[in-house]
Amino acid sequence: MTRFRVAVQIIPRRGLLDPQGKTVRDALVTLGFGSVSDVHVGRHMVVETDAKDAPAAEASVRAMCERLLANPVTEDFTIAGVVAA
């Protein structure tokens, strides 16, 4: 078993209203970043877990996302990276 550090990004599902993202976008536009068309605010998590290899670590964290870390009704997640800890 090796210890892996698996990074996950969880963001509001596309198409659902994201008031937090919209507020941040408006603030950026007010600051002069007029080219910003959209912002999505989500969460970044790093899970340290033991697994036999990197694909196993990723599969394990994917299951964690489906069961707890992301809300299946409203959020999407992507595995952003898997590295040996």
Binding site: P12, L16, L17, P19, Q20, N71, V73, T74
Partner: peptide
């Protein structure tokens, strides 16, 4: 809702 006793989810208010 989170426990699956009810359908749907409750998100951050639009305002």
């Amino acid at each position: 809702c989170e426990a699956g006793l009810l359908p749907g989810a409750l998100l951050r208010n639009a305002g």
